[in-house]
Write a protein that binds this DNA or RNA. Structure first.
Length: 463
RNA sequence: GGUCGGAUGGCCGAGAGGCGAGGCUCAGGACUGCAAAUCCUGCUACACGGGUUCAAAUCCCGUUCCGACCUCCA
């Protein structure tokens, strides 16, 4: 079964065929670094990280670009508000995003270009657009794209130009048509600017993505991704710019759905408590990732702390199986991708179906464990590990070192000492003494389980 | 006004004409000195009203409710 993906441009799921066999180029609209990341931002990162990992696991050589928008109105406003330079705002929040991505095991992109590093490419693109008669500089330092000059526009969102509500903005006087959008904004006093043939200024929001996608992936590339809300205007305008310049641009458009709270798109007022840095105080990063990745990427994910906790419990069950299996097997099996898992992922990344299959494997693996069938156990553990690897939730991944309830040699020695005492007490049926030892260890946050292979312990993963 | 989604059991969350996805919770059982873990069993749902069909959660028409986008947005 070949990989099929939903393409927003055609509103259908269709077989994915790369432009160059064996290679895939992906451009994901990354963050505007003007605030710390909340789980909505990071869901997009996780969803597309799963896509990327699946493409890699399927044998593709993936070039993954995720940009950083480090110049924009909000950043400038924030700089004034925080009384620090605009670049300090951008770098501060870029780091916050980087930390969040790392905590959730989102792989660093192949290249992570910043908008301000690509002014040259943007000027080249504007030059081309003006030469082709699709853009104009009215003389005030702005440069606009003339949407009426385009052969097609608004094909992604399927809207008609005349149906759009007019912006009603007071600064639109230089535009030929109110729907024309800014490629470049004239410098204002006190704001950063770069020189261009049309005057000093700074980039409009949409221009950077067209310029950087072309710079790193070429004029035509495979997949362009982002959140649902970027369809209009951002992606429409990217298409307008790039196609007007003569580029083929993206073949497949993918959009992830929202994390919502109380049925609504996450709002700023609730945003603080849903920042990644706050949530990973409640659950481990791997558990938050599991939660965000578990719903289908095109479905809304209704956030609640209860659902997050429940999801973490479900994940710990899988993790516990893997721990037990590795303990019995004496080694960590390499991940194996089963055909059932592959079929699910190939069906437009049907993660929920893949998770249902993982549950079945864990169940059969636990049965193998009870039956002491190490061959079946090893097979199950390998499949679970393979699946978790693609989902970026392999507790044995180095990225999660320190997050897993991994045994430490010295602690293991001490606990073992106590467990020997307890076993001795149990042997002489002094259960009061043995339970007392277990209770004392439990009070330290360590859980004891008696198994046919003897007692085992782990640091309680519940927080 | 235009465009696009959604409503599934106590909860979360898939599916998209016929076979009870899966998980969590809960109840009962097996195992266990007791726990824990694990396994087994049970809990038969698809907003409402029509229609098409041998058969509808799924398709069609209508209704209600919820949400997203329409130049800040993941």
């Amino acid at each position: 079964m070949a990989l099929s993906l939903y393409n927003t441009a055609t509103r259908t799921v269709s077989e994915f065929t790369p432009l160059t066999p064996g290679k895939v180029g992906i451009y994901l609209c990354g963050a505007t670094v003007q605030a710390p990341p909340h789980i909505g931002h990071i869901r997009s990162g996780v969803n597309f990280d799963i896509l990327r990992r699946w493409l890699s696991a399927s044998g593709f050589d993936v070039t993954f670009i995720r940009n950083v928008t480090d110049i924009d109105d909000k950043i400038l406003h924030k700089a004034v508000h925080e009384e620090i330079p605009w670049w300090a705002v951008a770098m501060k929040y870029e780091r916050a995003f980087t930390d969040a991505y790392k905590a959730l095991n989102v792989l660093p992109p192949t290249y992570e270009p910043r908008a301000t590093g690509h002014i040259t490419q943007m000027i080249d693109l504007m030059q081309t657009l003006i030469e082709k008669g699709h853009a104009y500089a009215p003389g005030n330092g702005d440069v606009y794209l003339e949407v009426r000059s385009l052969k097609s526009y608004l094909t992604l969102s399927n809207q008609k130009l005349d149906d759009l509500q007019s912006a009603g903005d007071s600064e639109e006087t230089f535009k030929k048509d109110p729907r024309d959008f800014a490629l470049w904004k004239a410098a204002k006093p006190g704001e950063p600017s770069w020189p261009t043939p049309w005057g000093d200024g700074r980039p409009g929001w949409h221009l950077e993505c067209s310029a950087m996608a072309q710079a790193y992936l070429g004029e035509t590339f495979d997949i362009h991704g982002g959140g649902l809300d970027l369809i209009f205007p951002h992606h429409e305008n990217e298409i307008a710019q790039s196609e007007a310049a003569g580029y083929g641009f993206a073949k497949t458009w993918m959009h992830n759905a929202w994390v919502t709270t109380a049925g609504e798109k996450m709002s700023k007022s609730l945003g603080n408590s849903l920042q990644v840095q706050e949530l990973i105080k409640r659950v481990r990063g791997i558990e938050l990732r599991w939660y965000l990745g578990s719903a289908h990427y095109r479905s809304m994910l209704e956030f609640s702390f209860e659902a997050l906790e429940e999801s973490a419990v479900a994940f710990r069950r899988i993790e516990a199986f893997l721990d037990r299996a590795i303990g019995i097997l004496g080694s960590t099996p390499d991940g194996v991708i089963s055909s059932t898992f592959a079929d699910a992922m190939n069906d437009d990344l049907a993660v929920p179906a893949a998770l249902a299959y993982i549950s079945e494997i864990v169940k059969s693996g636990n049965n193998a464990l009870t039956a002491n069938d190490t061959k079946a156990l090893a097979a199950a553990a390998a499949e679970v590990r393979g699946a978790l690897g693609v989902l970026g939730c392999d507790p044995r991944d180095d990225a999660f070192a320190g997050q897993s309830a991994d045994n430490n040699g010295a602690i293991d020695g001490l606990i073992s000492l106590a467990l020997q005492q307890r076993e001795a007490a149990r042997a002489r049926k002094d259960f009061a003494a043995s339970d007392a030892i277990r209770d004392q260890i439990a009070a330290l946050g360590i859980v004891i389980e008696d198994t046919p292979q003897g007692p085992r312990w782990q640091i309680s993963s519940g927080r």
